[in-house]
Amino acid sequence: MHTTSSLAPIAPATAYANTALKVSQLSWAIEGKTILSEISFALPQGEMLGLIGPNGAGKSSLLRCLYRFIRPAKGHISLFSQDISELSPKAFACKVAVVQQDTPQYFDMTTEQLVAMGLTPHKGMFDTNSSGDGEKIAKALEKVGLSHKVHQQYDRLSGGEKQRALIARAIVQQPQLLILDEPTNHLDIRYQIQILELVRSLGISVIASIHDLNLASALCDHLLLLDKGQVSAMGTPSQVLTEERIAEVFGVCAQVTPHPQHGNPLINYFYGYQKPQGVAADEVHSHTHQKQGGHP
């Protein structure tokens, strides 16, 4: 049952039969400053985990540890019960694909070439792209709705199209785990929803850092709330997104009600950092409680 104490119901790592990713006691510091400390969580296979938290909470650093761009000072990360440090760069890239926020300026490639880069870890030294690869690329482009932009320069795509092209590249990489670092940044709301739905529809395990709490609440199976490098809460959206926790971690005053469509928390922010007069806070609370009562 739900409690309003600040201690989060952290999902035990052994609770799932098929764990895609398991992180235990992960810590990382740079120049004496602790960025991540004692982070433990597990991601069941095929689920989508949203990583939320304020700026500087360590979301990107955590993801970078997961895709081995930075080496944590302490802790273990295992992918399908194999320690990730045992994998070669190539073998790791065959299992984990990453979509980052931005690409460099000096970049001369067509959309198709960018998507074809996803084949890199699967290819040997002199392997050329087979017709099967061509099909794979075409299918991925179709899936993200970019079939008409195949030969266009990647530089000239719009923000949303760029993001979708990067996801198409990740699809071509055929990963078992997909990591996305703020995939919805700089996108208008339609593409924010579209991209997360697209990622969800792939049916693979996904970790995505997301700024918009409502978006995270609506589209993720589980949420991991980071605060100052520590896990503040982990669980289903309704377990994690409570008014108290949002106030504590993000420093804003909010009202949480069940979303009319999917029942997950819907967050309304109050401007001026405090609850205005006349809003029946208790009523809102009882809604949340009822809903969470239905989901043990």
């Binding site: 895709y67 760069p89 990453v98 460099p104 990489q173």
Partner: peptide, 11 residues
């Protein structure tokens, strides 16, 4: 060409 970090994630 797509950046160090991207290249890293491509193995």
């Amino acid at each position: 060409q797509a950046g160090d970090e991207t290249a890293h994630t491509l193995g």
